[in-house]
């Protein structure tokens, strides 16, 4: 029991350092501001120009926006440690690598969720002006959170493979965008290839959430891709790239 609490405290120390860095860093606020600006645009175009009280524009545009924003959140996590040499401090702590990895991923995921929080104002506004399907909105947010987790894990992997933040960002964005594009390519592909693209891309899995359906297969998809990229990151950390 004592050992369990000790591990939890150590995990808390690792995670809170990452979170503190995000909340003290102007870069994190800039990324969040950019995300809110574009998401606000996605919401307000149908709202003001087409006079539609709907959050569909936001939920449809948010996944693509997140493929850009989440790698910007995660790019620093390992790349900066390797570049500055602090990876030697971190990876020589008496803490298993998986715990360090989870602490960093957890912190990035918290930041992504924190960025999603202010967007709650969009469905609340719509709810004041007209009818809104509360279940669908909740499911859509759950889908966005799961997507945020998956993209965070991909971004962390990209950061673990790079030695500077720009490379980490570009690699992370390309990987995330590949998962986005796989879903968009489905109409142009047929047979097995089309099925494979539909499964790999996150588009189809997000559609179910947008309809208000939280299918366990979709949840499993996001969790398994996240686990896969966490494992890739762990392999990378075990190889200890020299700074």
């Amino acid at each position: 029991m004592n050992s369990g609490f000790r591990k939890l405290r150590v995990f808390g120390a690792l995670c809170s350092k990452e979170l503190a860095h995000y909340f003290y860093s102007p870069a994190a606020y800039l990324v969040a501001a950019g995300f809110l600006l574009v998401s606000g645009y996605l919401f307000s175009v149908p709202f003001f120009l087409l006079n539609q009280a709907s959050v569909r524009g936001f939920f449809e545009g948010a996944p693509l926006l997140m493929t850009f924003v989440v790698p910007a959140v995660t790019m620093r996590l390992f790349a900066e440690e390797f570049k500055s040499g602090t990876a030697e401090l971190l990876l020589t702590l008496p803490v298993p690598e998986w715990q360090i990895l989870l602490a960093k991923t957890g912190a990035a995921f918290c930041v992504v969720c924190a960025m999603l929080c202010p967007t709650v104002v969009y469905p609340v506004t719509v709810a004041f002006l007209g009818n809104i399907d509360g279940g669908a909105v909740l499911c859509s947010y759950a889908g966005l959170a799961l997507l945020g987790l998956m993209l965070s894990c991909i971004g962390v992997f990209a950061s673990a493979c790079a030695r500077n933040q720009i490379t980490a960002f570009i690699t992370g964005f390309l990987l995330c965008f590949a998962f986005f594009m796989a879903g968009k390519a489905v109409p142009f592909l047929s047979g097995l290839l089309g099925n494979a693209a539909a499964f790999i891309g996150f588009d189809a899995h997000m559609d179910a959430f947008a309809r208000g359906v939280a299918d366990s297969r979709d949840v499993l998809y996001f969790l398994s891709v996240s686990a896969l990229f966490l494992y890739f990151s762990l392999l990378r950390l075990w190889r200890r790239p020299l700074g």
């Binding site: 120390a13 350092k17 860093s25 040499g85 401090l89």
Partner: peptide, 25 residues
């Protein structure tokens, strides 16, 4: 103490040492 003494530049001295201690349990 690694070569070139890498440190988290944005942390304060005590904050860094407390983190170092907490991360070691």
């Amino acid at each position: 103490l690694p070569e070139n003494n890498p440190l988290y530049e944005d942390m304060e001295v005590c904050e860094f040492l407390v983190w170092g201690g907490a991360a070691r349990g």
